[in-house]
Simulated scan of single mutants.
Amino acid sequence: MDRFLLMTCFVRAVETGSFSAAGRDLGLGQPNVSRHVAALEDYLQTRLLHRSTRKLALTPEGERYYAEVRRILDAVDESESSLRDNLAPSGLLRVACPTALAHKFLLPEIPGFLKRYPALALDLQINDRYVNLVDEGAELAIRIGHLEDSALKARRIGMFERVCVASKAYVTQHGIPLTPDDLREHDCVIYTLLSSGATWRFRDTEVSVTGRFRVNSPDAVRDSVAAGLGIGYGPRWLFEDDLESSCLQILLSEYAAPHVPVQLVYVANRLLPRRASVFMDFVTEVFTRIPALNSTLR
């Protein structure tokens, strides 16, 4: 019995959420993965997974075993990497990144990264929801904001300012808010995936805003604010082109909140494979040269 194979199948089933997805990922097929996980449970004489038609769920014993096996597989991967891939990291690297940040800054650099490391493959997961690195199998995530999860470690790769903006047409019709509290009387475009919800942060205060238009895309926030649908709030770099063309103007600049960090995060108790380390070094090198991600208060 190849226990290493059984453990690998179990871990990928947990991280992908199904035997079918794990089978595709490992090139083994769903029946084999299901059979290998069942064999592992028989060997351990313990149920590791609850199976249903919709998803897999870890049992309490499975949760403890997953954490230990994940560390074992990471240690093996790191050992092999140090011997075999010291100069040429290889394998599949999974990285999660917010949508606007990926399109604006990361995607243009990916060709250079893949050219530098030809034996490495990259699975870039672009979305604006919170990605659980343990449950979803990503080794790294680029996140905006301060780290609050003690199970993670972070490397800061940038800083930017958040701004409040509106089109000239909007302020001509509705006036300019003079304080953050004045936003309560205005139509605000609300980005529904903002971690603070419909609460906008300013220096020394937070304001709950309302508006007739809500959207889950940062680019849609920018476009709708430029179209005069309301006041927007977000990273300055998201609105930079429209600010330079004077399509938009910054509001409440004297109340600007402290700058926001951009961070690469990873699970604290895992050994990072070399492919993850070189990606972190590459992105840090690139992002430190981008003025919009190394801004100072203006």
Rank of each mutant, 00 (worst) to 15 (best):
Asp2Asn: 15
Cys9Arg: 04
Phe10Pro: 01
Val11Phe: 01
Arg12Cys: 05
Val14Ala: 00
Thr16Cys: 12
Thr16Phe: 06
Ser20Met: 11
Ala21Met: 08
Ala21Asp: 14
Ala21Glu: 14
Arg24Asn: 12
Arg24Gln: 11
Gly27Phe: 10
Pro31Cys: 08
Pro31Gly: 08
Val33Thr: 07
Val33Pro: 01
Ser34Leu: 12
Val37Ser: 03
Glu41Asn: 08
Tyr43Ile: 10
Thr46Glu: 15
Thr46Asn: 07
Leu48Ile: 06
Leu48Met: 09
Arg54Asn: 13
Ala57Asp: 11
Thr59Ser: 09
Glu61Ser: 13
Glu63Pro: 03
Arg70Val: 06
Arg70His: 08
Ile72Met: 10
Leu73Glu: 06
Glu78Ser: 12
Leu83Ser: 11
Arg84Trp: 09
Arg84Pro: 00
Arg84Lys: 10
Ser90Gln: 12
Leu92Asn: 11
Pro98Ser: 05
Ala102Leu: 05
His103Ser: 07
Lys104Ser: 12
Leu107Lys: 13
Leu107Gly: 07
Pro108His: 08
Ile110Gly: 04
Pro111Ala: 08
Gly112Ala: 13
Tyr117Gln: 02
Leu120Arg: 06
Leu122Asn: 02
Leu122Arg: 05
Leu122Cys: 05
Asp123Arg: 13
Ile126Trp: 03
Tyr130Arg: 14
Val131Leu: 07
Asn132Val: 03
Leu133His: 05
Val134Pro: 00
Asp135Ala: 15
Asp135Val: 03
Glu136His: 10
Gly137Lys: 02
Gly137Gln: 06
Glu139Trp: 07
His146Leu: 09
Leu147Lys: 12
Ser150Tyr: 09
Ser150Glu: 15
Ser150Gln: 13
Ala151Asp: 15
Arg156Ser: 11
Arg162Gly: 03
Cys164Lys: 02
Ser167Asn: 08
Lys168Cys: 04
Ala169Phe: 03
Thr172Asp: 12
Ile176Ser: 04
Pro177Ser: 10
Asp181Ile: 06
His186Asn: 09
Cys188Gly: 08
Arg203Ile: 02
Arg203Ser: 12
Val209Met: 04
Phe213Thr: 13
Arg214Pro: 01
Ser217Arg: 12
Pro218Phe: 00
Pro218Asp: 05
Asp219Ile: 04
Ala220Trp: 05
Val221Ile: 12
Ala226Met: 04
Ala226Phe: 01
Ala227Asn: 14
Gly228Tyr: 10
Gly228Asn: 13
Leu229Lys: 12
Ile231Phe: 01
Gly232Cys: 05
Tyr233Leu: 08
Trp237Ser: 00
Leu238Ser: 00
Leu238Ile: 02
Glu244Trp: 06
Ser245Asp: 11
Leu248Phe: 01
Gln249Leu: 15
Ala256Pro: 04
Pro261Gln: 09
Pro261Phe: 04
Leu272Phe: 09
Leu272Ser: 09
Val278Phe: 03
Val278Ser: 02
Phe279Leu: 11
Thr284Trp: 09
Thr288Arg: 15
Arg289Thr: 15
Ile290Phe: 06
Leu293Lys: 02
